[in-house]
Computed example of a mutant assay.
Amino acid sequence: MDLFVCAGCGAELSVPVERVALPAEAHCDAGHRWMPPLMEPGTYAVDPDPWGRPWRTWEEIGASGAAAHGVYAPAYGIPTGPRNVMVLAPGDTRGTRLLPERSGDSCLGMVAGDEPSLLCADCGLGVGFREDDCGIWQTVRYAPGAVVRRSLGVPPPAAPVLPLPPVDLEGDWDLRWSAAAGAALARLLAASGGRALCLPAGLPAVMFGRTVERLLPAGPPFLTVGVAGPGLPGTGADIVLVPSDRRTGEPWRPAGDAVPVPLPAPVWAHLARSGETSPTPVSGTLPAQVVRDDYPHPDRPGYLFRPDHRTLRGTLARMPEVRRPWLRALYDRL
Rank of each mutant, 00 (worst) to 15 (best):
A7S: 15
G10T: 03
A11T: 12
P16M: 12
V17L: 11
E25G: 11
E25T: 09
C28K: 07
A30H: 04
M39N: 05
T43L: 11
W55V: 13
R56F: 03
R56T: 09
R56S: 08
I61P: 00
A63G: 02
A66N: 12
A67Y: 05
H69P: 04
V71R: 04
P74G: 12
A75T: 08
A75G: 00
G77W: 14
T80F: 11
G81D: 10
N84H: 14
R94S: 15
R97M: 15
L98N: 02
L98Y: 05
P100V: 01
E101N: 06
R102Y: 08
S103L: 00
S103D: 03
D105Q: 13
G109E: 07
G109S: 00
V111T: 08
A112E: 13
D114I: 10
L118T: 10
L119C: 03
D122T: 05
C123N: 04
F129M: 13
R130K: 09
E131G: 09
D132F: 02
G135F: 08
V140M: 05
R141D: 10
Y142R: 10
Y142W: 14
P144R: 08
P144H: 06
P155Y: 01
P156M: 01
A159F: 03
V161Q: 08
V161E: 10
V161D: 08
P163N: 06
P163F: 06
P165T: 06
E170A: 15
E170N: 12
L175Q: 12
R176I: 02
W177V: 07
W177I: 11
G182H: 05
A184M: 11
A184D: 07
A186R: 04
S192H: 06
G193F: 07
R195I: 01
C198G: 14
A201V: 14
A201C: 09
A201Y: 12
V206C: 07
M207D: 01
R210W: 06
R210S: 09
R210A: 14
T211V: 14
V212M: 05
R214Y: 13
L215F: 08
L216R: 01
A228K: 00
P233Y: 03
G234V: 11
G234M: 08
T235W: 08
A237R: 05
D238E: 13
V240L: 03
V242F: 03
S244N: 02
S244Q: 11
D245Y: 11
D245T: 08
R247P: 10
T248S: 15
P251V: 09
P254Q: 06
P254Y: 04
G256Q: 12
V259C: 10
V259F: 04
P262D: 09
L263G: 03
P264G: 05
A265G: 00
W268R: 01
W268Y: 01
G275V: 09
S278M: 14
L286A: 14
P287M: 04
P287K: 01
Q289F: 15
Q289I: 13
D294Y: 04
P296N: 07
P296M: 03
D299C: 10
G302C: 09
Y303C: 08
R313G: 03
R318I: 12
M319D: 15
P320C: 13
R323S: 10
R324W: 06
P325T: 14
W326F: 06
L327Y: 08
R328E: 15
D332A: 12
R333W: 05
